[in-house]
């Protein structure tokens, strides 16, 4: 997929680019309003990551512009402003999602993937990974043609892993993804382990290879190796 990252914080920008690059993704970036404006006018992207506080202009104006140009680019707002007004304003203007800083890169990737899937497949929302096929809109999973029955949480977890394949995903990020970051259960994420264990067991039983690996006790990695 082709992604434009509009972010003025250089360090953050680099991390995002590093995380997204690879697997056939093309990432471009803009660090200020003018550059972003130019790129938006000239090219089309699968998804635009838009920071609201930009030097040289207001991020929401860029969003308005994207909609004026009638582009089909998906837009994900990333903002440090944990403000309901901004969130509602952004979504009203046609943004697809809103993520508050600080966020986990895995969460960002999962959300971007979801937006791109929605845009590209128009309801026929399918993720393919080796022998695993996930129909996201129908919530159906098949491994080598065998259907796998998963709970809602296990399903969400699998989609999350597939969006972040070959990346280490922390338990913290997984918990926030599944239960929301307002949960404030701070550190004890042992209950994540149960879900991962069940998911792995069900996939193995259906005949998939073992893709789930625990990493340093911090998190998990889903992918070949």
């Amino acid at each position: 997929m082709k992604i434009l990252v509009i972010e003025d914080e250089q360090a953050l920008l680099e991390s995002i680019l590093a995380y997204f690059t690879g697997e056939g993704n093309i990432c471009e970036h803009a660090s200020d309003f003018a550059a972003a404006n130019e790129k938006i006018s000239l090219y089309s992207y699968d998804c635009i990551l838009l920071d609201l506080g930009l030097p040289g202009g207001e991020g929401l104006e860029l969003l308005t512009k994207i909609k004026q140009l009638k582009k089909r680019d998906g837009v994900l707002i990333i903002s440090a402003r944990h403000s309901l007004d901004d969130k509602l304003a952004g979504l009203d203007l046609g943004a697809d999602d809103y993520l508050v800083k600080p966020f986990h890169l895995s969460e960002l990737k999962a959300r971007v993937s979801a937006i791109v899937r929605r845009k590209n497949f128009d309801g026929n929302n399918i993720i393919l990974f080796n022998e695993i096929t996930v129909d996201v809109s129908a919530m159906k999973i098949t491994v080598k043609g065998n259907q796998v029955m998963l709970t809602k949480k296990e399903f969400d977890l699998l989609v999350y892993f597939l969006s972040n394949r070959n990346k280490v995903v922390t338990k913290n990020a997984m918990a926030e993804h599944l239960w929301g970051d307002e949960m404030d259960m701070s550190d004890d994420f042992d209950f994540i382990y149960t879900h991962v264990k069940n998911l792995r067991k069900k996939l193995l039983e259906a005949g998939s290879a073992d893709y789930l690996h625990s990493v340093y006790g911090i998190g998990y990695k889903f992918g070949d190796i």
Partner: peptide, 24 residues
């Protein structure tokens, strides 16, 4: 409030993303 939030959240976001990158 917006500025304070922004100014403090940005370095935090950087730390967080760098950690995620480091982990990879």
């Amino acid at each position: 409030t917006d500025n304070a939030s922004h100014e403090m959240m940005t370095p935090l976001a950087v730390i967080n993303s760098k950690l995620d990158s480091l982990l990879q």
